[in-house]
Design a protein around this nucleic acid. Sequence first.
DNA 1: ACGCAGACTTGATTTGCATCAATTCGTCAT
DNA 2: ATGACGAATTGATGCAAATCAAGTCTGCGT
Lengths: 265, 265
Amino acid sequence: MRTSDIERVKGLPLFADAAPDTLRVATAGAHLQRFPANTMLLLEGDPVDFLYVLLDGQVELHGTWNDRETTLAILRPVSTFILAAVVLDAEALMSARTLDRCEILMIPGDAIRTAMRLDPRFAMAVSRDLAGCYRGLVRTIKNHKLRNSTERLANYLLQLRAADNSGSVVRLHHEKRVLASLLGMTPENLSRAFAALQRHGVSVHGAVVSLGNIGALEALAKPDPLIDNHAPRIGDIIADADAEIWSSEWYKTTGPGAEAAKRHG
Amino acid sequence: MRTSDIERVKGLPLFADAAPDTLRVATAGAHLQRFPANTMLLLEGDPVDFLYVLLDGQVELHGTWNDRETTLAILRPVSTFILAAVVLDAEALMSARTLDRCEILMIPGDAIRTAMRLDPRFAMAVSRDLAGCYRGLVRTIKNHKLRNSTERLANYLLQLRAADNSGSVVRLHHEKRVLASLLGMTPENLSRAFAALQRHGVSVHGAVVSLGNIGALEALAKPDPLIDNHAPRIGDIIADADAEIWSSEWYKTTGPGAEAAKRHG
DNA sequence: ACGCAGACTTGATTTGCATCAATTCGTCAT
DNA sequence: ATGACGAATTGATGCAAATCAAGTCTGCGT
């Protein structure tokens, strides 16, 4: 494991406040693994033996029922996933699949649970992280139960804008069919939702979306701090922040090799 | 505060494992309060100063946006709520309203946060509780994104049956319009969904629902342990259990004065 | 270059659910 | 009992989104 990777893990709010020993023990027992694109890392129902830390690439979390499938979240580096299952030593409720080639650190679950018992600051950090994830899901549910698909897309675009740079052009991070599933609609309807937003100044060219009329878009989207997390994600980590990592993605690095990452909250 | 109430709080998984001092300090700073039906306890956006422990009555958590409103959960005694906001010292993302006359214990948030720092076992319990709540929300999202309204109702009824007694008659715990909002539909459509279930042996008389053909109902509902939590809720608390309190309700007492309560998980 | 496969878009149609409207039912206050 | 209100049901209609079906565009391997 490269020391630069250890630095990145240490930068995570989950470990930032931990005792030096905690990080050392956790990373000692961990192993770094590479996966090709489109690999199942974990199937829902499987016992969860590791806490996963995504260092490079994108991972999709999804759920299935009765031959249907829905995307629950898409993760970007640096972020952890399935912490809740690790804490409870329970089976996974979501499946995890790589979208790109990925580099993932796997920390044994019992190392995490032991560390929580030994290191109160770490236990506190786990609680804060889980509380943030929880609140992110509350936002997601409100988003889905209270808004229609066009409104969800409009808010997603505004959120991207806020996270990226607040400019008038944003880049979609995923394939449109994946985005559609994340936003709870079919690919066909995502196309139509984009078409509907033309009226509000939005134009799409592949993954590049121009927001020509922010005012009009906001008038439609009615973004709400109690649903949408519009905090920019570039800069230093704010340890105190509401760790609300979940509305659609977790962290974001500023670019290749960039170390800076920031919480949503 | 009555000692019987303290006993009930001590019975919560959140406090069961805590150091004696933790419970003592928490309950010392707490105050017990009664509220009439239909009282707003907390408005979304408000800072959260207390951890709430519902000792008697029912509380609805709901969210609003753009003049729409949706029920996110309905709580029954004994259960805690807005723990995540307390841990992060953040504003509430959900509003809380009493449905009945309620008896609620309010524990200052900073007492909770201090206790977490001083008592590692308590911090661990908080993590476990939050992890359980988180997983409950994952189930809820899967339920909503993967099923239609009739399927959600069918599974809700089967869950009630499993929680209550596994008999062929269940009693709805809430008004139908509240249930409709919880299940993500209009009251009109809940009526129609019940009508659709007649075909599968379900008949409704007020709050009493007979499930005349469990097999047929299950064939429609296709209950799934990764979405639905069918564990019975009568008996002793299982401290190890997956604290998944959220799919629709939290705890349930077995009857007036009964002390036994059990986790979903 | 060519052909293929998969992503994306667009249109036609169907389905599910919300909305609007009217009526019944039960509960409570007078 | 009577009237009044809110909850629940039922029917008619409209809208949003899924589905089905072509078709275009793009990247990729041969």
